[in-house]
Simulated scan of single mutants.
Amino acid sequence: MQGAIEVILRTFTAFILLWLFVMVLGKQTIAQRSYHLYIASITMGTIAGNLAFNVKVKFLYFIIAIILMGTIVFMLNWVAVQKSRIGKWIAGEPATLIQNGQILEQSMEQMGYSLQSLKQALRAKDIFNVEEVECAILETNGSLSILKKEKYQNATKQDLNLLSPTRNIPVDN
């Protein structure tokens, strides 16, 4: 019974520490917007999981590991914001895969991004023909941002002179 109580306490502690980690580092941790945040999320989850059930390792060691990892990630985020050159190295940079309607094969090769992966990402954006794309950028979080060629872009209300009155957006407080 004592072992079960220890696991319960460790699990609650792990949850609280992970929750604090996400609260301190913000929503970008959830979105894993860069390499170091992706790595940190995996590592923090592993440490927390071990804290919850690995009773052979001292409780204090897990606490030290979580605090140290959280501090490292916090410092990397701070440096990335303060120093843009270093920030590009820490967080990575977006890569252009299609420019002026042309697939940049060298850029795709450098990123390890195959033509099949590009086509799959385009289909996820409801683009089934590469010819429709003016520009495609692989963002640091792995998502693909697309600018369609002008003739394939959707018409907007402004294009059709159908401007509607401004509305307030309801926000829960």
Results as ranks from 00 to 15, higher is better:
residue 122 L to I: 03
residue 51 L to R: 01
residue 93 E to K: 13
residue 105 E to R: 04
residue 157 K to H: 10
residue 76 L to F: 02
residue 43 T to R: 01
residue 63 I to A: 06
residue 149 K to N: 07
residue 146 I to M: 01
residue 98 I to W: 01
residue 3 G to L: 15
residue 14 A to H: 05
residue 129 N to I: 02
residue 7 V to E: 10
residue 108 M to A: 01
residue 128 F to R: 02
residue 60 L to V: 15
residue 137 I to L: 07
residue 99 Q to G: 09
residue 2 Q to W: 12
residue 36 H to S: 14
residue 7 V to K: 12
residue 134 E to G: 03
residue 71 T to Q: 03
residue 49 G to H: 04
residue 83 K to L: 15
residue 133 V to H: 02
residue 66 I to T: 09
residue 45 G to A: 07
residue 14 A to F: 07
residue 113 Y to R: 01
residue 19 W to Q: 06
residue 26 G to V: 06
residue 42 I to T: 08
residue 52 A to E: 00
residue 24 V to M: 13
residue 12 F to C: 11
residue 55 V to L: 14
residue 127 I to R: 00
residue 3 G to H: 15
residue 65 A to I: 08
residue 36 H to V: 15
residue 155 A to R: 13
residue 33 R to M: 08
residue 110 Q to F: 06
residue 87 G to M: 09
residue 84 S to E: 14
residue 139 E to R: 06
residue 2 Q to F: 13
residue 165 P to N: 06
residue 115 L to E: 06
residue 99 Q to V: 11
residue 112 G to V: 03
residue 168 N to K: 13
residue 164 S to E: 13
residue 124 A to R: 11
residue 153 Q to L: 07
residue 30 I to D: 00
residue 112 G to P: 03
residue 66 I to C: 09
residue 66 I to N: 06
residue 113 Y to H: 01
residue 144 L to Q: 00
residue 78 W to V: 01
residue 92 G to E: 04
residue 40 A to R: 03
residue 126 D to I: 08
residue 106 Q to G: 09
residue 31 A to V: 02
residue 102 Q to I: 10
residue 134 E to K: 06
residue 59 F to Y: 11
residue 39 I to N: 10
residue 83 K to H: 14
residue 153 Q to M: 10
residue 70 G to M: 08
residue 82 Q to R: 15
residue 90 I to H: 06
residue 68 L to A: 15
residue 139 E to H: 05
residue 10 R to E: 02
residue 133 V to W: 01
residue 171 V to T: 10
residue 12 F to L: 14
residue 83 K to M: 14
residue 85 R to M: 13
residue 170 P to A: 12
residue 100 N to V: 03
residue 171 V to N: 09
residue 2 Q to S: 14
residue 95 A to K: 14
residue 143 S to D: 12
residue 171 V to W: 08
residue 118 L to I: 03
residue 172 D to P: 12
residue 161 N to W: 03
residue 14 A to P: 06
residue 70 G to D: 08
residue 44 M to K: 09
residue 31 A to L: 04
residue 24 V to Y: 11
residue 146 I to N: 00
residue 87 G to S: 09
residue 168 N to C: 11
residue 70 G to A: 09
residue 135 C to G: 04
residue 42 I to V: 10
residue 17 L to N: 09
residue 34 S to V: 07
residue 161 N to S: 08
residue 37 L to S: 11
residue 171 V to F: 12
residue 135 C to K: 12
residue 33 R to T: 12
residue 116 Q to D: 13
residue 101 G to A: 03
residue 86 I to T: 11
residue 63 I to P: 04
residue 108 M to E: 00
residue 97 L to Q: 02
residue 74 F to N: 00
residue 91 A to G: 09
residue 112 G to L: 04
residue 166 T to E: 11
residue 50 N to T: 04
residue 168 N to S: 13
residue 155 A to E: 14
residue 67 I to R: 08
residue 56 K to R: 13
residue 95 A to N: 10
residue 96 T to H: 02
residue 58 K to A: 13
residue 20 L to K: 05
residue 95 A to H: 07
residue 119 K to A: 07
residue 14 A to M: 04
residue 30 I to W: 00
residue 4 A to S: 12
residue 44 M to T: 11
residue 125 K to M: 04
residue 6 E to G: 10
residue 159 D to T: 05
residue 53 F to M: 06
